[in-house]
C-alpha cells in the first residue's frame, strides 16, 4: 500500500508529516490522543542521513512529549549499500536511532510498528524491530534475503529450500513466518484506525517475542535456552 492512502485510513482525524525523499516524520490525531509518526516509503534504503533524520524526530518527541506514543511505518529494502556510509560508521548511526527509541520507551512512550511495504534486515533492525508491538499489513513482506540468494550462500538447491520453507519458518521470507516466530504480533486488515487504537491501548509488557515464538511453535528453543543461561545452568 502507498503511504498517503495508508495515512488516510490510519488517521481519519488528520495527520501532518514532513517528508524528505522517502523518509518522513510528523504527528497524527487519534481518538486516544496525538501520536508521533516516523517512517520510510517506497522501499527506501536507509542510510546514515536517514537514520539521523528519524532519530531527530524521536528525540524531539521525547523532549517535548515524553508520553506520546510513537508509530513507526516501515517500508524499507534494507540498509543503503555504500562505501561512504560504511566509512562514516553506518552501524553507529543505526545504533543511535535504536538508542533514541529505547530512551523514548523508558520515558514512557509506547512504541508501535506497522510494516506496510517491505521490511528488510538492517534497515528494519534499528527502528521497526525496536517496538513493543509489531504489526504488518497482509500484503507486506519481511525478509533478510530472498530464497534464491540464500540458496547461493548455503549452497543448497532452491527447490529443496522451497520444500523446507513449507515446514519451517526460520529462513523463508514472509509475514506469516514472522508471526509464527513471535516477532510480528498480528496482521492488520479492514479497519486500520481501530486496529491502531487497540494496539495503543495494550499495556507495555517488555520483550515477549521469545515467549510468543514458543507459544506459536515457530521458535521453540530460544525462550528455554535464554532462561537456562539467565539461571546460570551449566
Amino acid at each position: 500500500m502507498q503511504l498517503m492512502p495508508l495515512l488516510e485510513r490510519l488517521f481519519p482525524l488528520g495527520h501532518s508529516i514532513l517528508r524528505r525523499d522517502d523518509v518522513f516524520s510528523g504527528s497524527a490525531r487519534t481518538a486516544a490522543g496525538e501520536v508521533t509518526l516516523i517512517g520510510t516509503a517506497n522501499r527506501r534504503e536507509v542510510g546514515i542521513d536517514d537514520a539521523l533524520q528519524l532519530a531527530a524526530a524521536v528525540l524531539a518527541s521525547t523532549r517535548e512529549h515524553p508520553q506520546r506514543p510513537i508509530l513507526m511505518l516501515v517500508d524499507t529494502a534494507g540498509q543503503r549499500l555504500s562505501r561512504r556510509d560504511e566509512l562514516l560508521g553506518i552501524n553507529a548511526y543505526f545504533a543511535h536511532l535504536a538508542r533514541t527509541l529505547e530512551l523514548a520507551r523508558r520515558r514512557g512512550a509506547r512504541l508501535v510498528t506497522l510494516v506496510y511495504g517491505e521490511a528488510v534486515s538492517g534497515g528494519f533492525l534499528s527502528f521497526g524491530l525496536m517496538a513493543d508491538q509489531i504489526y504488518a499489513l497482509a500484503g507486506a513482506q519481511i525478509r533478510v534475503m530472498d530464497l534464491r540468494a540464500m540458496a547461493r550462500v548455503t549452497k543448497q538447491p532452491l527447490d529443496k529450500l522451497e520444500a523446507l520453507s513449507r515446514s519451517s519458518p526460520v529462513f523463508a521470507p514472509g509475514v506469516d513466518n514472522y508471526v509464527r516466530m513471535g516477532a510480528v504480533e498480528s496482521v492488520w486488515q479492514d479497519d486500520l484506525a481501530a486496529a491502531l487504537l487497540a494496539a495503543l491501548a495494550r499495556p507495555a509488557e517488555g520483550d515477549r517475542r521469545r515467549e510468543r515464538g514458543a507459544e506459536r511453535g515457530g521458535r521453540t528453543l530460544a525462550c528455554d535456552v535464554a532462561a537456562a543461561v539467565r539461571a546460570g545452568e551449566a
Partner: peptide, 11 residues
Amino acid sequence: EANAGLIAISE
C-alpha cells in the same frame, strides 16, 4: 536460519 537470526539480534 535468517529470520530467527534477525529476531535474535533484535533481542
